[in-house]
Structure formats: structure tokens, C-alpha cells
Nucleic acid binder design. Structure first.
Lengths: 236, 236
DNA sequence: CAGTGGTCTAGACCACCGA
DNA sequence: CGGTGGTCTAGACCACTGG
């Protein structure tokens, strides 16, 4: 009707967000039903439904069929942590990314590693180790194992030109990934190659990626604590 | 028509995900138009639209009005990092959460801190420091400043019963938050209170939350590296 | 049982893009 | 201009919840 600039479903979302954000509606309180919002806004149910469905996806409300929609318990702050190809990340800061390859070989997998890949102990896996640098300063030690079944041409890559992550994204479409981040002290070799003291704390990310039926890659990424941090943001 | 168990829009999503995941459709390739998928699946456009809209929301495809839908460039792995109330988190593991309050006072804000809150230097802020324990083991040192304008009753809380995070979630509805995670060594006091050596690496999270017009809280959370890690997952 | 949300249809008008 | 996606409607049937 009106020449309103905002789509109707966005208006409904804004209305509800305002009520929640201002504290008028508290966690656990009921949100008006789709029928009620239809009437109130004079719009069709599909439109109201879309608004509520998106709010549920954002974690602001909880919907239960047959019961109703309620303001969610906001006991968690959920935000996106984006893990990106390091070359792209450095380039976006307007800096120069370079890499030094310390190792790029095929190896027989030890028992634990073979397990991670779902392979037999002693099966061949690819193993690469490199140092990533931003404007000449080492910022990441990347120790990675790759499943040949997922990326057979892995070792033919010039890792100074194409980062291992990029090669894998291109040749082994990602279907699943998991990671964990912890604090640690660098090993002797990591400290030497990163050019830091052994006592300097580091962030270590363990990452495991799955491509289709294969575990594609298992990597340990070590960042000097003083040169790197993960940041994130959240907006209601 | 068929007694298919999966909703039609989920079937469309699964179809497209399979094509992308298997590498048949590569980044930049066009995805069939809504009209084409309507025909192919024999369903209405709204249903196809929902499937494609959700895939776009998940970052798997890019949609441009007038141009079409394409497979997204998968150069980033984007996953949710969920930050939760520590009491809830410990309780969910079936463990016992306790807290020890080291400080809970009102203070005059130094220049830098006042800036963070958008207050004058010397304005009164609340300051709390506590140790969180899981089954009696210290897992987090929480050093937090709170804006009285956002949570006037903050200091009246018994933090051994209601965690600062929970109090804030209840009284200062969250509209925005940002954080960063880095590795560090604990200060003397942090090491003493956490019961760890000074050389033991820690994860430090700096968190800043906004509630409506106010910056509600600024906190530094220190976790012993050997007792904590952040984990996340991603699924295409 | 009445009320809720989950899904779906068969149309429609519009803004935008590229040829 | 035709094809694309963005939005919206006015119905519909169903599964589930709660009293």
C-alpha cells in the first residue's frame, strides 16, 4: 500500500526486534501468533511466516509447532567466525603475502593419523609444512596432511604461488569442516621457523576438512600470539 | 504428490548441494533459474525461491537480481563460534560450576576505559573480577567493567549464584557484541588466582557488548591454555 | 477440540540486468 | 526487450500442542 521503503517482512522483523531489544518482551515471553501479526500489519500469512522464520534462524525467537513462538533465551552470543585463505586475508589488508616451503613429501601415515583419514596404517599421505609471511614477517606455521584420494595433484602445486588451502578449495570441494583453537607454546622447530622465543605464547588451530566421502586434510596452524588474533562480531 | 518425507524446498536444496559438493558445479557456474527448477521439480516458484534464498543465506550461492544465481566462491570457511554463559556451558557438561569473587566495586574510570564506554574520564563504572571453576578447577579469570547506565543493579548481584554474563543478558538486552581472541601469558595475579605457572600460555578473549544506546560491558576473559579450547564446526 | 506453526500453490507486480 | 530474482497475496492441507 504505502510507498514504504522497507519490505513488509522486514518491517515485521524490525518491530519484533525492537520489542526484544528494548526489553519490553523478555526471554520466554510469547510473540504474537502469525494470525495476530497478519491482522496487525494487514499482510498475508506467508509474509509473516517468513519474518518469524528468519528471526528463528537468527536465534532471536523459538518456534514450536502447535505451541507458538516465544522470545528465545539469549544465553548465548553466537557469531560467525570466518576462516579464510590466508593469502586472501593478507592481500585484503593491502600487504604482501609470501610463503616458504619447508616440506612437501609423501609419507606413510602413522596409526593415529591414518585413523583420522580412515586409511590403513602405513598408507601414503601427503605432508606439507610451510611458513606464511605478511610483509616478510612470519605469521603462520602450517603443518598439513592431505588425503591423496581427495587431492591427488596436491604435491604438484607451487605453494609459494597457490596456498594449500586454495588448492584444496579448488580441487576438493568442501562439505564439512571442524576446528578448535587453543593456546600453546611453540615447539623448538616452530619457534625457530617463526623467529620467536620458545616461551612466547601462540594460538594453535587444529582444522579438519571433509570433502564428499573423504577426510581431505588435517592441519595444525600455529600463530605467534603477538602477531595475530581472531576477531568476530555479532549484531542482533 | 509422492509421500516423500523431505519437504520440497529441502529436496531442491539437497539437489543443489550435491551438485556443488561433488564438484559438478564449480564456483562461478550458473545455477538453474527459479523457472527451470519449478519445471524440473514440478513445484511452485515460492518453494523454489525459498530453497535458493536459504542456500544464499548459507553462503553456498550468490544471487543477483536480473542476472541470476551462481555457485559462490568458496574461498572462506565461515562457521558459527558460539559464546555462551559459562555457567550454562559447564552445567551442560554435567559438571559443577562455582565462582569466587575477588572484586566487586565502583570505580572512577581511567581515560582509556571511559572512552570505551563513551563516558567522561573519572565517571563511575562498576568493576568485578572473579574466578570461574569447573568441578573445583579454575578455568576462567573474568575481569569486567560495566556501564552503570546499562545495568544499575549490577553490584547487587551475588555473582556466586548469577554470573555477570547472565545478569547482563537479563538486564541489558544485547544488541551488539564484538570480541577478539588471542594468546598471551597470564599476569602475576592471573597466574596466582588460576593456579598456573607464569609461563603457561593462555587464551584471552576481549569482549565488548552494546545494549541499545550504551556500551554495556567490557571484559577480559583469560583461560588457561591447557584447560580450555574453542571449537567450531561447519557444514555445507 | 481450537489454535498454532510447517508447508505449498498459482497466480501477481516490480526492479534490475544484459543483450 | 526478455529473463532474472525480490516480494507479496489469498487461499489450502497438514501435524502438532494444549486444554
Amino acid at each position: 500500500m504505502a510507498k514504504s521503503e522497507l519490505p513488509a517482512y522486514e518491517q515485521v522483523k524490525a518491530f519484533i526486534k525492537q520489542r526484544i531489544g528494548s526489553g519490553q518482551w523478555r526471554p520466554g515471553d510469547p510473540v504474537p501468533s502469525e494470525a495476530a501479526l497478519m491482522q496487525q500489519f494487514g499482510i498475508s500469512r506467508m509474509t509473516v511466516n517468513r519474518a518469524l522464520r528468519e528471526l528463528a534462524g537468527e536465534g532471536l525467537v523459538t518456534r514450536v509447532q502447535g505451541s507458538g513462538t516465544r522470545v528465545a533465551q539469549l544465553h548465548r552470543i553466537s557469531s560467525k567466525l570466518t576462516i579464510r585463505d590466508i593469502h586472501e586475508e593478507v592481500a585484503e589488508r593491502g600487504h604482501v603475502h609470501t610463503a616458504r616451503v619447508l616440506l612437501a613429501v609423501r609419507e606413510k601415515a602413522a596409526a593415529g593419523l591414518a585413523d583420522s583419514f580412515g586409511l590403513r596404517t602405513g598408507a601414503v599421505v601427503f605432508h606439507s609444512v610451510l611458513i606464511h609471511m605478511e610483509n616478510g614477517v612470519a605469521i603462520q606455521y602450517e603443518d598439513r596432511y592431505v588425503n591423496p584420494a581427495a587431492a591427488p595433484a596436491y604435491l604438484e602445486t607451487d605453494f609459494t604461488q597457490t596456498s594449500p588451502t586454495l588448492h584444496l578449495l579448488r580441487h576438493a570441494p568442501l562439505t564439512e569442516a571442524s576446528y578448535s583453537i587453543e593456546a600453546c607454546l611453540p615447539t623448538l622447530e616452530e619457534a625457530r621457523e617463526l623467529g620467536i622465543k620458545r616461551g612466547e605464547p601462540c594460538l594453535a588451530m587444529m582444522r579438519r576438512t571433509v570433502s564428499g566421502a573423504h577426510v581431505a586434510s588435517v592441519a595444525r596452524l600455529v600463530y605467534p600470539g603477538t602477531r595475530y588474533s581472531f576477531a568476530g562480531q555479532f549484531q542482533a
